[in-house]
């Protein structure tokens, strides 16, 4: 279970005028939401809403200024072995000097797993993402979609309780994207992991999630939350044509628009 309570993050940048010139930028104001064990929650927000900051706080890569994040009941204050992350920039997140196998295996070696177990996990993970047979290739020899599959395999092999995905399909083409969305849902159903999926794509959020959390513009709060009451078995063709799907996406769209407008009306008096 992932709990985010009153999360706040303020960046301080030293101004030129020394003592008095400290400029503060409030990225996250007050964020509270929960992802239950085994749940798949999508997070959407207008661009520039502090998604990356939020994600880095959850992953333990960034210290929050206030509030706290807990994972499975324990407060996060550094990268946790219970959490695996899939980054948006697969090309920069996979290590180009390692083969596909070594990329997936490296975190397992850090976990000090015995060799046989590592081999087994790597094999299963690559099999699960449909990449069996590419073990000895370098990641850059594969297509973009396949590279992101390697990154997903690396996360899955890590055996996390929670999977954090940061706009993982923003950089792949539409068809590959549809395949990868189905892959994520299939893996989630099979492995029973908790998934927090961050995206800027409203359709994707509604298609994937059991719940969609909408964020406001920066400084960020939770704008709204909606439960996606679509059947658990989803497919690209029928789910997306479902009137309920359309109604949900309209709702999310309106909320995101409202969030953007809110930001404008908030900013206007100041300037």
């Amino acid at each position: 279970m992932l709990e985010v309570q009153g999360l706040r993050k303020v960046y301080k940048s030293a101004g030129r005028s020394g003592r008095s010139g400290q400029r503060e930028v409030e990225a996250l104001r007050d964020l509270t939401f929960t992802v239950d064990t085994g749940e798949l929650v999508c997070l959407v927000g207008p661009s520039g809403c502090g998604k990356t900051t939020l994600l880095r706080c959850i992953a333990g890569l960034l210290e929050p200024s206030g509030g706290k994040v807990s994972l499975d009941g324990r407060e996060v204050n550094g990268p946790s072995p219970g959490l695996a992350m899939v980054f948006q920039e697969y090309g920069r997140s996979l290590f180009p000097w390692m083969s596909v196998r070594d990329n997936v295996e490296l975190p397992l070696r850090q976990k000090k797993l015995p060799r046989e177990r590592r081999v087994e996990l790597v094999e299963q993970a690559l099999e699960a993402v449909g990449l069996a047979g590419t073990e000895s290739a370098f990641p850059w020899q594969l297509s973009g979609g396949m590279q992101q599959r390697v990154a997903i395999a690396r996360a899955v092999a890590y055996e996390p309780s929670t999977l954090l995905m940061d706009e993982p399909f923003a950089a792949v083409d539409a068809q590959t994207r549809a395949d990868l969305e189905d892959l994520v849902r299939a893996l989630w159903q099979r492995l029973g992991v908790t998934v927090l999926f961050i995206t800027h794509d409203i359709d994707e959020a509604v298609y994937l999630g059991q719940r969609v959390v909408m964020l406001s513009s920066s400084p960020t709060v939770v704008q709204d939350e909606v439960t996606v009451d679509l059947p658990a078995d989803r497919d690209q063709l029928h789910t997306r044509a479902d009137p309920r799907f359309t109604a949900l996406r309209t709702h999310v769209y309106e909320q995101i628009q409202a969030a953007k407008l809110g930001a404008v009306s908030q900013a206007a008096p100041r300037s």
Partner: peptide, 10 residues
């Protein structure tokens, strides 16, 4: 991103 990846995976 490579450094973040390394940190996130311990």
């Amino acid at each position: 991103v490579q450094l973040d990846t390394a940190r996130a995976y311990g």
